[in-house]
Design a protein around this nucleic acid. Structure first.
Lengths: 143, 143
DNA sequence: TTATGTGCAAATACTTTGCCTTTAC
DNA sequence: GTAAAGGCAAAGTATTTGCACATAA
């Protein structure tokens, strides 16, 4: 197959597929990390340097509105994007290196539903981020 | 007593207390919501219209760095502040009205510690936001 | 064909900074 | 007295928009 996952998603949503959107969709499909706009733009430039920053902004906003992308802001004020089609998960951010680790935990999900309900709400979304530093495992060679 | 809570905190931290900082600390002490900068500025203006926006920015940043305030961004791109001295809690945001409800739940806290640990990290911070819509309680008058 | 998308530059936030004046300690 | 803080306007960033041209369907 020649279409990237995101290209297919765009088609399914009935979005008009221009060359620019194709490139942007491909770049994002290929991204397994959480790039910010500048990074996305840089990657796009490497494929087609003609694509303007305005188009990138417009397209990322469109993809966001269509729930093709998720927008994040991990406490450093920088907006990042992530392919929304990947399985539901949360993030643990390494305060030292900035590395982002994805995780999922059903107990948390259940608990959140429960809490929302107890407050009189139906949960329609949530955001959970953990910030941590690596555990010191000096005791690696446990006697 | 004449000093607001935040004024005292500032003194404890050894911050130089200017008239402007006093006003800003008082306004924030009196705020029980989660105002954004514009709102904070407006409230400050009502006390002392001479205080400049630059000073508000500088002071809010300072208070943040000193852990006197907490910075939030609840998904709408607007930066909001909250008195950091209040007890630890999380937020549930009403997607309809934007109303912010605070809650605390020890089970969540414990679970988060556990998850971080299982990923090899020591938890040093976290962020949890729930987004919900009011439950329909039509059955209010349960037969 | 024709509504929609794009590139470019200008406009609009929002936030920080330089510099000179003011002030807390 | 002196280092730190404030006011103001200018400078940065980040993002959006107006408009003429290009293009997908």
């Amino acid at each position: 197959m020649r279409l990237s996952h995101l290209e297919k998603t765009c088609q399914e949503k009935g979005l008009r597929m221009t060359a620019q959107r194709r490139v942007i969709a491909r770049v994002l499909s290929a991204s397994e990390d959480h790039p910010n706009i500048q990074e996305v733009y840089k990657r796009i430039q490497q494929v087609d340097p003609k694509i303007s920053l305005a188009t990138v902004y417009r397209t990322l906003r469109l993809f966001q509105e269509e729930h093709i992308l998720k927008r994040h802001e991990f406490g450093d004020g920088i907006v990042r994007y992530e392919n929304a089609s990947v399985e539901h998960h949360h993030h643990l951010i390494d305060k030292g290196t900035g590395q982002i680790i994805e995780f999922h935990d059903d107990r948390i999900e259940t608990l959140q539903q429960e809490i929302a309900k107890s407050l009189g709400y139906e949960l329609v979304g949530h955001r959970l981020e953990l910030y941590g530093v690596p555990l010191k495992k000096d005791k690696k060679k446990k006697s």
